[in-house]
């Protein structure tokens, strides 16, 4: 009668390094939480809001919901109040997607290792585009509002720049991954750079280009909803003005409208992209 002895494998010891990393991350989180004012006590006291002179003076703590409710739907669906700015939002998104994506086509080819005409252009475009992308879209909006005046025009500019940077990043990486053989064939047949790229690479990556363009359009719709908060036109301007006069019920009404608009546009965009790719 032999009893099979099962030898359990030894439990691996926690490595010192991972322990140090874990402690470091926890310490950083606690430190960051303190800096932000987000500690365990604030989480526990989430129900009764922080003692804030702004909050106390504006309204009674218990009556917060009365600020948001009821929503004045007839105000929200008024053409002048909300619908026109919302249309302006779409116009900004359409124009800036068009400009950003058309400019992105040549720059992406310059920015890909496969199709770049020469190294200085490759490095220059890569560095410039990375810096442009590192500046958030609303920073661009605010800068351009200051530079060329309040309104949708500045917003369209800002979003054009930002969508150019996003598009170039996505598309140049796709070009990097494209099949190099048609390009080599075109070059071997004596094609010059631009015709070789045009016939050897562009057809294989063009579907991706269209899909990205739709994605950038979707991004632009979302961004154009909020650039108005810094004065760059669209529905955000309405939100900002209503917020400043504490008409939060109207703000909430606009938000609900935006919510459904974004949801519908996302569904449409996803459906189109599925058919394309």
């Amino acid at each position: 009668m032999a009893t099979a002895t099962v030898v359990r494998p030894k439990r691996p010891r926690p490595r010192i390094r991972s322990l140090i990393i874990a402690i470091g991350l926890i310490a950083f989180t606690i430190f960051a939480g303190r800096k932000v004012g987000f500690t365990l006590t604030t989480v526990i006291n989430l129900g009764n809001l922080p003692d804030n002179p702004f909050v106390d003076t504006i309204w009674d703590k218990g009556k917060i919901w009365s600020l948001f409710w009821p929503i004045p739907w007839d105000w929200v669906f008024n053409r002048q109040n909300v619908i026109d700015p919302l249309l302006e939002t779409f116009q900004i998104a359409i124009i800036s997607s068009l400009i950003g994506c058309s400019l992105a086509l040549p720059i992406s080819f310059a920015m890909s290792r496969l199709t770049t005409p020469n190294w200085p252009i490759y490095i220059l475009s890569k560095v410039v585009m990375n810096v442009v992308r590192a500046v958030p879209d609303l920073f661009w909006a605010k800068l351009l509002v200051v530079a060329i005046g309040i309104g949708a025009f500045a917003g369209a500019w800002a979003l054009s720049i930002f969508s150019l940077a996003v598009m170039v990043k996505l598309f140049s990486e796709t070009i990097d991954g494209a099949d190099p053989r048609p390009l080599e064939a075109a070059q071997a047949a004596g094609g010059r750079h631009i015709p070789a790229v045009r016939t050897g690479v562009l057809p294989t990556v063009f579907p991706a280009y269209v899909a990205y363009a739709l994605y950038v359009f979707e991004l632009n719709i979302r961004a154009s909803l909020v650039i108005g908060l810094v004065g760059a036109g669209g529905i955000g301007r309405v939100i900002e003005t209503q917020r400043q006069v504490f008409e939060f019920d109207r703000v909430l009404g606009i938000l609900i409208l935006i919510f459904f608009v974004v949801l519908v546009i996302e569904q449409i965009s996803v459906a189109i992209r599925k058919r394309l790719v």
Partner: peptide, 20 residues
Amino acid sequence: AVPELIVAVVLLAVTGLGPW
């Protein structure tokens, strides 16, 4: 579907201004 800036606009109304 709701951009974080929009969330923040509502939250700022409730909690007041600040990094929190």
